[in-house]
Amino acid sequence: MTPKRGNHRVRSPKTKRTETPRYGADGRRVHGRRGRDNRAPCGLAWHRERPCDPGMYSWSGVRSGRRLNVVHIVTNAHQSRTAGIWANTEVEVIEYGELQDVARPIGSKRVSLRAALRETGGRIEARHKPSKPLADGYRGSDHLSLIERGGEAYGHTPFIRSFRCVAIHFDDALLAEACGTANGAELFHSRLMFENKPIWAITDRLALECVTPRFGQRLCCESLIGLLAVELARLGTPAPRQPCKGGLAPFRLRRILDYIEANLGDNIAITELAALAEVSLPHFMRAFRTSTGEAPLRFIMQRRVTRATRLLVETSTPLSKIAHECGFADQAHMTTCFRRIAGNTPARIRRERT
């Protein structure tokens, strides 16, 4: 019994528990109770990547207040795949099960388009590098990704329960016919995580025709693939301007466009453009959008991106100097505008063209 002293119990000293140290095959000491040999290093928890290779394990846990994650690059994570070839273009409808910390290569030897059709219990996104997310991209569940011929891209997800997508690998001859040039496939460059409702609707219909064979399937799929090729070819080309009611007069519009091109390297104020057109500022904003299809500021930014792209391809001028010559605040501002408008970065564009 524990002896008492006054109104308090006196606890008897406890015997310090000792444990015989154990050592693993690598000579390091193994901590923990007996029978727990299959433990992750430094107390980290093992978990199985169920949708991937059954023998593949990864580890994640907490060390020094930081969560550690290992991203696995897998190539056979799909649960079901339906494929067909029409107009020498391969179409794949792929269903994925549960994925966690997985990056899958989605590049191809051909120009390919991938469309997310359904995301359940998570989100998946396209990246240029497995462990480097895009700084700016479309966040909707109906995102599209265009990957150039032989380009590098990965589909990454921290966790998702199920995912359905369609991948279209275009024939070079079809793209050349859609672009009207012999080397049409070389005009397509990678553009990840962007939004385009008409193109997404076509890919959704194409996926439905692929998985539900019916009479007329070949003709329907070939028509949809051809329409997709034309839409992608026109993706970076502005629509021809048609005279419309409520826009600027042709001579005033030409005066404004010439002024913008001549002063892209300077700060262009909208009030200056309105005064040059000899109309009020609100009327100028409405009329300019009606005539060009874009707001004045966005139109100016698109012209700056176009000029900077030409300098990136044709010259070896440093990026900071190109940003200054094209009217951007600095190199970081130019990179942000390129991601929003061109879906790519200046450094990557220069690296791809050299």
Rank of each mutant, 00 (worst) to 15 (best):
I85V: 13
D101F: 04
I85K: 12
E98G: 06
E92W: 06
T75P: 00
L99S: 08
V93E: 01
A83R: 11
A83K: 05
Q100F: 02
A77W: 06
T75R: 10
G97A: 11
H78D: 09
R104G: 03
R104K: 10
W86E: 11
V102S: 10
A77P: 05
T82I: 12
D101S: 14
Y96W: 09
V74Y: 03
I94E: 12
G97P: 07
Q79T: 15
I85W: 04
T89R: 03
A77I: 03
N88S: 08
T89K: 05
G97L: 08
A103Y: 06
A83H: 07
G97W: 03
N76D: 14
S80F: 06
Q79R: 15
N88D: 15
V93S: 04
R104S: 13
V102N: 12
T82C: 10
N76T: 13
A77L: 11
H78W: 08
A87V: 09
V91G: 01
T75E: 08
G97I: 09
T82P: 02
Q100P: 00
N88A: 10
Q100G: 13
N88C: 03
E95N: 09
V74R: 14
A77Q: 09
A103S: 15
V93P: 00
V91T: 05
T89N: 05
G84T: 06
A83P: 00
Q79Y: 04
V102Y: 00
R81M: 09
E92S: 06
T75D: 06
Y96M: 05
W86G: 04
Y96N: 08
R81Q: 08
D101T: 12
T89C: 03
N76G: 05
A77G: 13
Q100W: 04
L99V: 06
N76A: 09
A77Y: 12
I94M: 11
R81H: 06
T89P: 02
A87K: 11
V102G: 03
S80A: 14
A87P: 00
S80L: 02
D101M: 10
E95M: 00
E92V: 01
V102W: 03
I94K: 04
N88Q: 13
T82G: 01
L99I: 07
N88K: 12
L99R: 14
V91I: 14
H78C: 03
A103H: 14
V102T: 15
G84H: 04
D101K: 10
E90T: 15
V93D: 05
I85H: 11
E95A: 08
D101Q: 15
W86V: 07
D101R: 13
Q100R: 15
E98P: 00
N76H: 10
I94T: 15
R81F: 01
W86H: 14
Q79L: 07
A87W: 00
A83M: 05
V74N: 07
A77D: 12
N88Y: 04
A83F: 01
N76I: 01
T82K: 14
V74K: 07
D101C: 11
E92G: 00
A87S: 14
T82D: 07
V93W: 04
E98M: 05
I94F: 02
V74F: 03
R81C: 09
Y96C: 02
A87M: 07
R104Y: 02
V102F: 00
I85N: 11
E98W: 01
Q79A: 09
E92T: 02
A83Y: 02
D101I: 02
L99E: 09
A103V: 10
V91M: 01
A77E: 07
N88G: 02
G84S: 09
R81A: 04
N88V: 01
A83D: 06
E92M: 03
G84L: 03
